[in-house]
Design a protein around this nucleic acid. Sequence first.
DNA 1: TAATGGAAATGAACGTCATTCATTTAGTGA
DNA 2: TCACTAAATGAATGACGTTCATTTCCATTA
Lengths: 244, 244
Amino acid sequence: MGIEGERVVTDSALAGRGPAGTGAGAKPARRRAGRPPHALLGQGQITRAALKLVARDGYKALTMAGLARALNVAPSALYNHVASKQDVLLLVEDALMGRVDVSAFAGRPWGEAVRLWAHSYRQVFSAHLPLIPVIALLPVTNAPQTIRMYEAVTEGFLRAGWPPEGIVNAIVALESFIFGSAYDANAPADIFATGELADRAPRFSDAVARRRNPEGLNDADAAFALGLDALVAGLAACQSDRGV
Amino acid sequence: MGIEGERVVTDSALAGRGPAGTGAGAKPARRRAGRPPHALLGQGQITRAALKLVARDGYKALTMAGLARALNVAPSALYNHVASKQDVLLLVEDALMGRVDVSAFAGRPWGEAVRLWAHSYRQVFSAHLPLIPVIALLPVTNAPQTIRMYEAVTEGFLRAGWPPEGIVNAIVALESFIFGSAYDANAPADIFATGELADRAPRFSDAVARRRNPEGLNDADAAFALGLDALVAGLAACQSDRGV
DNA sequence: TAATGGAAATGAACGTCATTCATTTAGTGA
DNA sequence: TCACTAAATGAATGACGTTCATTTCCATTA
């Protein structure tokens, strides 16, 4: 909303070649070639359209053609603003990092802050699994929201008395657990169904059948809570032991 | 090696239509259409060829066409033995599970066994990142090596006195950490380079610069060792506290 | 004011990839 | 012996990411 200039320009720039007259409400409005009076695209619009598209139809629908359609633009127009689809994923990833709640590191005790951050982090990216390789493998350079998050977390660790030399490794360890748990949160309920091979794994099949979770937690949430408790407790203990 | 019947059949079934005569050493040997005298393919051959292809050229090269070429077969022939490329990935995944060392669960103390297993598990799949979504999201049914691994791990937990109700959650928590760490093991060295935005994240940039690892460990190995120690210690502690 | 250069759009085309289908051939069971 | 099925080829298809020539508009400069 606000003065985006989009609608005005779109209306005046429509070609008369539309399939059925020039009805103002016509959806598949076409534009003639050439640079439009005002810019239609930008990294911001692309990012927002990608987020909306993924929210509605999932990552299977996030194609350059689909994204262009959502923006009412030709696919090749996107390449004036991003170098590749990877670039789009990077934009989306950074936008999502802005949704990770790091506020607890400002005031709460370390253990509680880590837990709240980890839950938020996992929740955000559980719905965006295809971005996990992007986060885990691509440099954070030029990803301001991502850097902002790391800064807030680091501040929290420092405030809790962590030595700077050990902070990054602790964050990476927590992040690794969070990424893996995000995958697990999307696993089907029957992922451990042994089927015909049950008799070849009697103890495992029994453990799967007897699996019990704390009240109100599903399987994935219970495993995450267990691992997170263990990691937080273990890290707090390791912090004092482990010299540089 | 052994009586595979492959070579013999291949030689006799070659069509004389080869580009340059019928030289016995001709590489692009073509076969005429129709069912061959003896089967050329099977899930075993496909799995082995896929593993070899990935080992040589990586997952980018693991295409149905490339796999068919490695097997000296038309791409469509593969679909007589697997339903999809996902199916191929599943076969490869299960084969790799056979390489994960679970022997420590037979005799060593629980903490040491978990550590050895986790290191082996991470090492195997660090070189096979594209399989992680497959492991994490697809049911283990009809994946015998995978089930074998879980059985061995479960046995180790039971032997250490773990209550059956809590074993699966503990395994899932460890696995999540292992998967995330496998990604991290493939991250570039400069993944945390903040670049131009360094001044907006002074504490994080400082922590990255001052990062120090135990002797002989690179960044990824150090973070993995730290998190694994914390998880193992934390799980051992949680085991007693946490009732069902 | 006219000319020029670059930015931003279209639309056509390309190459890769997974997958399907018609066809051919060989083995198997009735 | 005959039908059926299994297992191969080769051609075709439809997505998808990406590139390129072309067109149009704006901003800068002579």
